[in-house]
């Protein structure tokens, strides 16, 4: 079992490394790093939404918390290693608490959406209102709408003067994305991962089998929060400034769009969606004829209408492997939009 599992990962791992090495040929690593961050953020929502069935309107909150926690810790500590872990841990813990509240309270999906949305709004408002000198954490001033600039960026662990930036930051970010992707593939094959997928399919049945659904959803939600946090940490190192805009509702909504465009129920879908839309925004950003948000909205509408399963699941159906089989299957299982393969 275990060796089979490892074998099945060699292919995707090599493919991912190849892509990582080839992309810099066509785009600057500076731009690519941001796309990788978006991919990771998309993955974090794709995990909890596509596998856990939890639609979170506040994934940007965990992203922002990761970025802010890193920045604040980096100002106070200096060396970047511990701040990185803080940047992952804080959003993971916050997601755990928020998740526990929602899942132990047995809130209906609609209210979960509302709560995550409101949570993001509160953080956005709060961060915007922290301009005064009273708002400090240790040596770090929160800075209100100006955000926090000037913190220690990533360094080689133990060597505060050996900065990781530019090309190196890109390769580091992409490697982390690959590692997380492979770990999640493994995770979804574990008993815990399999029950998570089952909960998405039929929560009541999983409960009647004797599994505690609440703790499982809470842990999955927390895992998603931690991954979004890591994306935030990487973002903070790329942008070298963190601002309340990270918590904006627009950002949250966009992550949902990435997942829809890329395709849910496959780990690569939301990664691809995040990177693709990120790229689109980058290219659009170089012109000023048409408004960005307008095009983004148009893309979403087109996808929902014509490619409801998203790019990756649709394209993978066209690939030669198992072509006839999957066609037949698609016809039979019309209307079901999620597949449980990674």
């Amino acid at each position: 079992m275990q060796s089979q599992m490892i074998k099945s990962m060699v292919g995707p791992a090599f493919a991912a490394i190849l892509i990582m090495c080839l992309l810099p040929v066509v785009l600057e690593t500076y731009t690519l790093t941001l796309l990788v961050v978006y991919g990771m953020l998309g993955l974090s929502l794709g995990l909890i939404w596509g596998y856990g069935g939890i639609l979170c309107f506040g994934q940007a909150a965990f992203f922002g918390l990761g970025a802010y926690s890193y920045a604040i810790a980096a100002i106070n500590i200096g060396e970047s290693t511990v701040p990185v872990f803080i940047g992952i841990l804080v959003p993971a813990v916050v997601a755990f608490l928020l998740g526990a509240m929602m899942f132990y309270g047995r809130l209906a999906d609609v209210y979960m959406g509302v709560i995550t949305l409101v949570f993001t709004l509160i953080l956005f408002r709060f961060m915007n209102s922290t301009a005064g000198p009273d708002f400090v954490i240790g040596k770090a001033r929160l800075g209100g709408f100006n955000g926090i600039p000037g913190y220690q960026t990533l360094n080689v662990p133990g060597f505060p003067d050996e900065y990781i930036y530019g090309d190196a930051l890109y390769y580091l970010a992409f490697s982390l994305l690959i590692v997380i992707y492979l770990l999640l593939r493994w995770f979804l094959k574990t008993s815990f991962g399999r029950t998570a997928i089952a909960i998405r399919e039929n929560e009541e049945r999983v409960e009647l089998m004797g599994y505690d659904v609440r703790i499982r959803k809470t842990l999955l939600f927390s895992l998603g929060g931690g991954i979004a946090g890591l994306a935030g940490v990487l973002y903070a190192n790329w942008a070298e400034i963190v601002t309340p805009g990270l918590f904006s509702l627009g950002q949250s909504a966009e992550i949902i769009i990435w997942c829809i465009v890329g395709g849910l129920g496959m780990l690569v879908g939301p990664i691809f969606g995040g990177m693709l839309i990120g790229l689109m925004k980058f290219l659009l950003g170089q012109q000023s004829m048409i408004d960005n948000t307008l095009i983004l909205g148009l893309v979403l509408v087109l996808f929902v209408l014509f490619l409801p399963k998203g790019v990756v699941p649709t394209v993978s159906k066209w690939l030669p492997t198992g072509r006839t089989k999957s066609r037949k299957r698609r016809r039979k299982s019309q209307g079901r939009s999620r597949k449980s393969e990674a």
Partner: peptide, 19 residues
């Protein structure tokens, strides 16, 4: 009450795995 998106094997395995 079953899990329609999963295989027969997976449905039953999850139940067996519980204990």
């Amino acid at each position: 009450s079953v899990m329609d998106g999963l295989s027969v094997h997976e449905n039953i395995w999850l139940s067996a795995r519980r204990r």
